[in-house]
Design a protein around this nucleic acid. Structure first.
Lengths: 201, 201
DNA sequence: ATTTGTGAACAGTTTCACAGCG
DNA sequence: CGCTGTGAAACTGTTCACAAAT
């Protein structure tokens, strides 16, 4: 399959989510436009990237569309291992986060540079000192990192991660991370988000 | 000034952050490429949107560039009021978040549909039941909403917010929010971020 | 009759390459 | 001479409009 452009990817991820709550048997591009604000033509173009090839008429079958989305976006059942680095307030909040419960993403480790924290806190999976970072990520084949360290540590850790074979970082710090192009970064810090909104208005 | 394209906006917001930690007096587009991975040509194009107009040579003066960024991105001193809606685990975590401390964004209110929570929790600013949402947002001129409710409540509240004159929403829920085009949304839910990373790899 | 799928036009973004400034 | 600023080219993404499918 030819690769899907990033803007389409982002919309398709959200579309998949939308369909989880959608109770009808079929859905039209027009209906999706109503629910999301994306133009019907754009929705059809996005979906055409999935190459469902169904002739036409009467909208998409929700079940079929969901299956195609799950496959194209690699959000199928196969488990994807994740870890949290930085067990300050935000890291601890995400430790017991229920959001990932019915997803293919599994938290398998936590790290903090303070041994105090890694020993006192507890969770469903083991917590380690940051010195163990590289060895454990490699041993466990961890694919995604949730980065909640404080700003000074962010780039140094990102640099270390670059050589561990991870696929992506969810960056909760307000720092710009410089990593090789084959590692993807999603910037989700509150400050970055607010500044981006502010820049638009 | 002509309006800045969204991709440039996102980079410029991060560039401003980068310059806060940058200790030299000047910086070149080549150096920014090293620090961020964005091509030097792209960096120059982005910066040219700020219309600094300085002839040429010898890189940008860091101080001058920062001033121009702060102005263009509206991240100057003028206070921007924010509120948190939903005081579950994530909402409470953000209540005492220090990230906004040296920023123009000020938390001025919290909301939850459980009166129990709004009465028991405390914070530096008042907490209200969700029934008060519209009146308080309008009275206080709140511009940005941090949305940390549970999924079922997300779209109903987004719909209410549409008529309150807010400028943007930082969406911590994994839901697609359908709001008028003049309200901007940043999707920062962990699940959405992980799925977007997974779709790219 | 409705709605998809898609060529073709259009709009937006990035890269190239180089003139011109300091 | 190094570096910016920017036309022009290349590329990417979105909308239009309609033929084809049912």
């Amino acid at each position: 399959m030819k690769s899907i452009p990033v803007p389409s990817q982002r919309r398709l991820v959200l579309l998949e989510r939308l369909l989880c709550d959608y109770k009808e048997r079929t859905i039209t591009s027009q209906k999706i436009e109503e629910l999301t604000g994306w133009s019907a033509a754009l929705v059809r173009r996005d979906i055409s990237l999935l190459e469902i090839r169904r002739g036409a008429s009467n909208g998409y079958k929700v079940a079929e569309l969901k299956t195609a989305l799950i496959e194209a976006l690699h959000i199928d059942e196969t488990e994807k291992k994740c870890c949290i680095i930085g067990l300050g307030q935000m890291g601890r909040c995400l430790l017991n986060n229920e959001e990932l419960e019915n997803s293919p993403f599994k938290l398998v480790a936590g790290f903090d540079s303070s041994v105090n924290r890694t020993e006192v806190l507890h969770s469903a999976f083991p917590l380690h000192p940051t010195t163990m970072l590289e060895s454990i990520i490699k041993k466990e084949n961890i694919e995604y990192v949730i980065l909640t360290v404080n700003p000074e540590e962010a780039q140094p850790i990102a640099t270390k991660l670059a050589s561990c074979g991870i696929k992506g970082i969810v960056n909760y710090t307000p720092c710009v991370l410089n990593v090789p192009k084959d590692i993807f970064v999603e910037n989700v810090s509150l400050l970055t988000a607010l500044e981006t909104l502010s820049a638009s208005s």
